[in-house]
Amino acid sequence: MAADTDRHFIERLTWDEVARRIHDGAPAILPIGAAAKQHGFHLPLNTDRLQAEWLAARIAGPVDALIWPTLTYGHYPAFVEYAGSGSLSAATFENLVHEVAAAILGGGCRKLLVLNTGISTLAPVDRALARFDAIRVKHVWTHGGPRYPRVAKELAQQRHGSHADELETSLMLALAPHLVDMARAEASPAVTEDTPGPLTPSDQNSPNYSRSGSYGDPTLATPAKGEMLLAAMLYDLNEHVAAFVAKSAEPRSAVTKGVL
């Protein structure tokens, strides 16, 4: 991570520096990105974390936000058959997100944006944040819209996919190409269901069989596609962040709707 982003990550600051920034009104960003989740033969297990922190660093700049340590364990039940992949129960993950968010707001931050890279994590995060004032807390999915889905649809050549696929691999080729081993990229078999169940590397008779763990065709990925996808994603995210930060916050003492 570039040195000029260090001032945004609280783990690289002293506590009194963080206190001053909070006092001055710096919004908070809480990234969510797995560090122990398979991403095929060609991408590392911390792919989601890398994306979450890369994106957080870039959306923090325009609003001078503080970035909290990434939540690297989450609810990822679709990947547990693959070595190294971990998953919390939905209830445990929901409680984790709620407690961390409550601590951030309770520490004086007036605004908190939760930056989510996952899919199975969306519903638990929504439930965890529903107990807070919506003026102070916002949940943003990195693959939300409107620009990113449109660009993704225009660029995608694969017939199916959503994990370690053409699009995600293209993103990684753009932001961390040294970590991508395209020689090992392997497409998953075609599936008949739009949304598969938990993937499996062992049951070849399952409709969700994927030897590599990919769901889609990462062999079609290119850095050029990744650059276009990242540009659309950042445009969407920066628009969401700017609008959220611009809204008037409640007084600092009103942390939640009566729940901490």
Rank of each mutant, 00 (worst) to 15 (best):
H8L: 04
A34P: 02
G107Q: 13
A246S: 14
A28L: 12
A187N: 02
T92P: 07
L50W: 00
I104K: 01
S87F: 13
D217T: 00
A60L: 05
Q157L: 12
S248T: 11
A2Y: 02
V140A: 10
A101I: 12
L113R: 03
V259C: 03
L260M: 15
P27H: 07
T169D: 00
Y209T: 03
I59Q: 02
Y209S: 02
D165T: 03
D48T: 06
W15D: 04
L122V: 13
P189G: 11
L50D: 06
A156Y: 09
A60I: 04
I29Q: 01
G226C: 01
G144Q: 02
P189D: 04
K138H: 11
S253I: 01
L129P: 02
A187D: 00
E11F: 11
Q158E: 14
T222E: 04
V80L: 08
D64I: 07
A65G: 09
A128T: 07
T222Q: 05
E81M: 07
G61W: 00
V18D: 04
S89Y: 07
F93S: 00
A232G: 12
T5P: 08
A90F: 00
Y82T: 04
G74T: 12
P124D: 09
T219S: 15
E227P: 03
I10G: 01
E166P: 14
D203P: 05
K247D: 15
L113S: 05
V80C: 03
A19C: 13
M172R: 04
E94T: 10
T200K: 02
L88A: 09
C109H: 15
K111C: 09
L88T: 05
H178A: 09
L129F: 11
L179A: 06
L105D: 01
T14G: 14
S170V: 15
S248G: 10
W141K: 10
